[in-house]
Amino acid sequence: MITFPDNIGISDIQCGDCHSLALTSNGWIYGWGDNSDGQTGCGQHYYPFVDCPIRVRFHPDIQIKSIYCHNNSSYAITDDTIDGVGTYGQVYKVEDRETNQLFAIKEIFNDINNSYLIDEVKNLLKLRSKYVVYYYDGWIESDFLYIQMELCLQSLGKLLEIKGQTFGRQANHRCEQPIDLVEYYITSHIIQELCECVEYLHTRQPPVIHRDLKPENILIQIINDKSIGNRFIKLCDFGLATEHNRWVGGQSSELHTNKTGTQLYRAPEVNRDADDRIAYNEKSDVYSLVNV
């Protein structure tokens, strides 16, 4: 029998292959079972097996929202959200307690009609590159789908908000006030990397249309990885992305769903009224890119 200290209310229990976590009503976590990979959160090297619940310690400022166990891993999801990231869900910053590596966990309500949830996972699995936010894992818990991804703390939207002020220009006079030489080269580098990201999608076989390019879906990551060079820009949020199969059944086809994506950045051909699917291709992303 598993016992807990008196006056502890348990709000959730999650089980992996051979380990478990319990979340209390006051936000504490207890772990027990197989700990060969550190999955109970109690320290892999000191507790290969935990036979009774031990409290997993976090910084006192961290508020645990929910827990999840998967095979030989565990997740404690906090209220530490990342602002301005994710069209269809909230994104949380998490830390691997063994490696101290940071990740992003995207939480999306798992409505039965939200087929884009599975689409996003499938699209991320296909797009493994330095131009796209890296996907690690995905699982369903209760009414939510969780996607574990590479952590990028800033979006282009946030960067654009502060860039003019950083270089001494008023945000509401961004177009009227000229930029200086340094800001020009920084802006040019951002545009170059962004074009490379979009080019990567459009040169896949078949091409991939993102269909929701906007500053909030363009992330900034500082990467200390010589193998990919000094890159900072990555694309995310592929729930609306689709493959553009030019030849279907021996005939040319460019039919896709209309009015897809954010209206402000939507190409005219995508924005047309229609009772059925309409013809457009990856060039619609180029229109969105110009508006960004």
Score class of each variant (00 low, 15 high):
79 D>N: 15
76 A>F: 08
67 I>R: 00
82 I>S: 07
89 G>A: 06
75 Y>W: 11
67 I>V: 12
71 N>C: 06
73 S>T: 10
78 T>R: 08
81 T>E: 14
81 T>I: 15
85 V>F: 03
77 I>M: 09
80 D>K: 14
88 Y>D: 05
79 D>V: 10
70 H>Q: 13
95 E>S: 08
78 T>K: 10
83 D>C: 11
92 Y>G: 00
84 G>P: 00
75 Y>R: 03
94 V>N: 05
85 V>I: 15
73 S>M: 10
82 I>L: 15
95 E>L: 07
70 H>V: 04
73 S>A: 13
71 N>D: 09
72 N>Q: 14
69 C>F: 04
94 V>H: 05
76 A>T: 08
74 S>F: 00
86 G>I: 02
72 N>I: 02
84 G>A: 14
75 Y>M: 09
91 V>E: 01
87 T>H: 09
77 I>A: 07
97 R>N: 05
72 N>W: 06
73 S>G: 04
97 R>G: 01
83 D>E: 13
77 I>H: 03
68 Y>C: 12
95 E>M: 11
70 H>C: 09
69 C>G: 00
67 I>D: 01
74 S>M: 05
96 D>G: 06
81 T>L: 13
67 I>G: 01
95 E>T: 13
86 G>Q: 06
96 D>R: 05
70 H>K: 15
67 I>T: 04
74 S>K: 03
71 N>H: 11
86 G>P: 06
84 G>I: 03
86 G>R: 03
95 E>D: 08
69 C>H: 01
97 R>C: 06
73 S>Q: 09
83 D>Q: 13
85 V>P: 01
87 T>Y: 08
